[in-house]
Amino acid sequence: MNLFLYLDRDSPVHRLDPRTKLFLMLGSFAVAVLFFAPTPLLLLLGVLLVYGALGRALGNLRRIWVLLLSIAAVSIVSWSIFAGGSTPLVWRATREGFLYGIGAAVKIVSMIISGLVFLSTTKTEEIVLGLIRLRVPFQAAFAFSLAIRMVPTIIGTAVTVTEAQRSRGLDTESGGPLARLRTYIPLLVPIFLHTLRNTDQLAKALESRGFGARRERTSLLTIGFQARDVVALALGTMTVGVFVAARFAW
């Protein structure tokens, strides 16, 4: 089972410079944090879905939809009950809280989808190159890309460890909060130690591949701004501009 997000496809979004995609993602984050009402946030979500479809990246949604739905559900239910408001809906939930909850849910989901599209269409090596061009030191940029790569590895370890402990009778699914906290120790210790050992191996492997041997490093991949990047950035800036204007002018 492949846990990595990058999809090796050819699409207009894949062909964009990594910096362009980084800026577009940051722009979408900015819009997301500006709004609280559901309508503009749903609009943003719509724009992002179109962007994702252009990048042929929406297939990856299949892998995280459970996560997205649960985040949305938790957000909507808890805000409905706890946000307060004057128009009662059912039990302690209010209409204002409900709408706020929808807004909050769409906001988080939009940001996750924006990040997902970025990672699905950009190789980590391209991210590193992009960051270097943005004056981030190579070591730091590479560490960032390794962190992205580590997530799936750690998830894989966590799955195996959980299966191994369940095979010994560990019940990870029931009990009160305190009891569940205790069940995490047999999971966290092996995951942590295994990851530590992996990291040690990785450090040796990196050394043996000459990592850090020269100040000047070359690269097989090349990146550079093209006409399409100009178009994408213009469209992106315009979209963000419209949202910002809508927020403050109207």
Binding site: K123, G212, A213, R214, E216, R217, L220
Partner: peptide, 13 residues
């Protein structure tokens, strides 16, 4: 391909 390229890249080839 990028896996194989990583070493020579570090050496500035």
């Amino acid at each position: 391909s990028l896996e194989v390229a990583f070493g020579p890249e570090n050496l500035g080839v």
